[in-house]
Design a protein around this nucleic acid. Sequence first.
DNA 1: CCACAGCCTGACCAACCGGTCAAGAAAATT
DNA 2: AATTTTCTTGACCGGTTGGTCAGGCTGTGG
Lengths: 209, 209
Amino acid sequence: MTDTARPLRRTEIRQQNETLILQAAEKVFAEAGFGGATMQLIADMAGLPKANLHYYFATKEDLYRRVVQDIFEIWLHAADSMDQAPGPIEGIGAYIQAKMEISRRHPNGSKVWAFEVMHRAPVIQDYLETTLRAWTTGRVRLIERWIAEGKMAPVDPEHLLYMLWATTQHYADFGHQIETLNAGPLSDADWQKATDSVKTMILRGIGAL
Amino acid sequence: MTDTARPLRRTEIRQQNETLILQAAEKVFAEAGFGGATMQLIADMAGLPKANLHYYFATKEDLYRRVVQDIFEIWLHAADSMDQAPGPIEGIGAYIQAKMEISRRHPNGSKVWAFEVMHRAPVIQDYLETTLRAWTTGRVRLIERWIAEGKMAPVDPEHLLYMLWATTQHYADFGHQIETLNAGPLSDADWQKATDSVKTMILRGIGAL
DNA sequence: CCACAGCCTGACCAACCGGTCAAGAAAATT
DNA sequence: AATTTTCTTGACCGGTTGGTCAGGCTGTGG
């Protein structure tokens, strides 16, 4: 066996091009939706011939599916910090923090996800029914425990989760509207203020402050 | 037969067909986005030949613009009840109530609006900069007055509005996700509980309860 | 070195798209 | 009844789309 510490050229090419295509696809799908996006536009943005896209991803739907799945992964890991927290102030506070940072760093991913769900999730329906449902059930139990321990008011856990999702993702999905009302992109201070506002209102709203 | 088919008058025909087309268009645009929607699909859903659509609406974009504008009107009138309220409990409570009812009754409209804003508002950018900005400024002043009068905590008014929009519209835009987790459509009681949950959490979150 | 497998791409295609148009049907006006 | 105006629609068109394919190119293992 030879030393394989250095990656082979072939796999490098493959990985590099796949990444290039996926980044371009995320942007185009976010900006035009599935129907409005064209393989030619994605190819141009990735700097590759269109035929090359079809070498790596057989169909437009396959490419779209990969984009949505990748986003879903990022989404799920945002709540890791929530689990080991002693109470809602730390747990939900950290979750809001994480989701606001994702909204800032991956606005296109959030939009593609929104687009997919809005259109009745034709591609990731099974994920909703399995992974997301299991995830939700787990957090509902966690919140119910916090309520039982008197650490927060007896709110409905599901609707609390919806409010967390809605509010944090709004800064990505409706970023253009917010920027228009703000007369320009949000600064570091603006994002900090937004995060603090959301944290304060929600944590007080659930009686944790 | 007591009912003979009276020939329709010109204005009746026009209004009836425009309504038919607009309803079909709202649904198709919501389900597929602008790029994914086709005039043929809208025509089939309205039960008219495609060429007839182009008689009433010259281009696909004209039709889309009308759909978005109609939704925007409904949107704006939702806050009428907010203005004459003595304080945030009545005012913001009524606004949440109105917006939750719109999310239930016009989920497609909400989705088309979301689609338009997510794609940088190519059609209604001027509305955002004029009408929506003026509307927002007015409500910000109202909230600031309530804060000054000690009727609620000193939260940032803009981020409160974003939270109201995000949370209420989430039940329309992400209705499919909610229904999947709920294992079926929301009942009357479910909607009541959702509205109550949102009201309680937000009103307590702004220190009005 | 060779031979093979993986990578690349210009040219092409059937299907579908938004939009047009001319000719006719139906209602309004005279 | 005759004429004008509005409405209806099948057939059609140029342009674009997702996807294909043959054949050239290149890195890799033997």
